[in-house]
Amino acid sequence: MTAKTADAVDWHESIAESFQAGYDHSPRFRERLALWRDLIGRHVGAGNRVLDAGCGAGTFSFEAARVGASVTAIDGSAAMVTLARARQQELGLTNIDFEVALLDSLSARAEGEFDVVLSSSVLEYLPDLKGEVARLVRLLKPGGRLILSMPNSESLYRKAERIAFGLTGRPRYFAHVKSMASATELAALYRALDVAPVEHHFYAAPPGDGVLATLGDHRSKTLLVMVGRRIE
């Protein structure tokens, strides 16, 4: 683990409880959950083996488990995994294995082990985007689904954040962001790794989105999620 990766993990350790609480209080978090719940409901089936790479407090792991999948969920933050295990006990879901681990630990797992790989807002914190996506693709069975999200580089709000961070050092989380991508760039990366893009969506409107919304989702929404199928 590099020092920069450790910094990102420490950051998520510090915000674990407040981040998870967002799903209870924030309309933007509820929008995220609704979109991912729909994607998981359509692309994950009962009996599937699912990897949640960077599971946080387990929100999407629970969605996959509810449809009958067997879920392996990892996160570098012990605080996040503690929250996930506590919630797992409350829900009584036994078909999830939560583990404190970094994504580089996945290199030791067997190729083609999973039917579906999920990764929500994780890869932007790692320095080698293509290498990390390739690591996840290797774990997919032929025909398996890759569902990952990251910051939308076409978002005007994201562009403003980058400028503001360069001038003021805020927003502070931006210190840990290594990459963003447009839908076109992410689709090209998928294809380069023998993954056929299936669908993509933009979500998470920024504060004061009224004017930006008139420019279209690809310019206003701050996050991008893409589903792909590993070519057989």
Rank of each mutant, 00 (worst) to 15 (best):
L123H: 03
Y125C: 00
L126E: 01
P127W: 06
P127E: 08
D128I: 06
K130A: 15
G131I: 09
G131V: 08
G131K: 07
E132L: 00
V133I: 13
A134L: 04
A134Y: 02
V137W: 01
R138Y: 06
R138I: 07
L139N: 00
L139W: 05
L140F: 09
K141E: 05
P142E: 07
G143I: 08
G143H: 08
G144W: 06
G144T: 07
G144P: 08
L146K: 07
L146A: 10
L148G: 05
L148N: 07
L148S: 08
S149Q: 04
P151Y: 13
P151N: 14
N152L: 12
N152T: 07
N152K: 10
S153L: 14
E154W: 15
E154H: 14
E154Q: 12
E154G: 10
E154K: 00
S155L: 01
S155F: 01
L156C: 05
K159R: 15
A160S: 10
A160F: 10
A160V: 02
A160D: 10
E161W: 02
R162I: 12
I163E: 12
F165R: 00
G169K: 11
P171A: 03
R172V: 11
R172D: 12
R172E: 14
F174L: 15
V177Y: 10
V177F: 11
V177W: 07
S179A: 14
M180R: 14
M180N: 08
A181Q: 03
S182T: 15
A183D: 13
A183R: 11
T184S: 15
E185T: 10
A187C: 15
A187T: 11
A188R: 14
L189G: 09
L189T: 11
R191D: 05
R191G: 06
L193E: 11
L193V: 09
L193H: 08
V195Y: 07
A196P: 00
A196T: 15
P197D: 12
E199R: 13
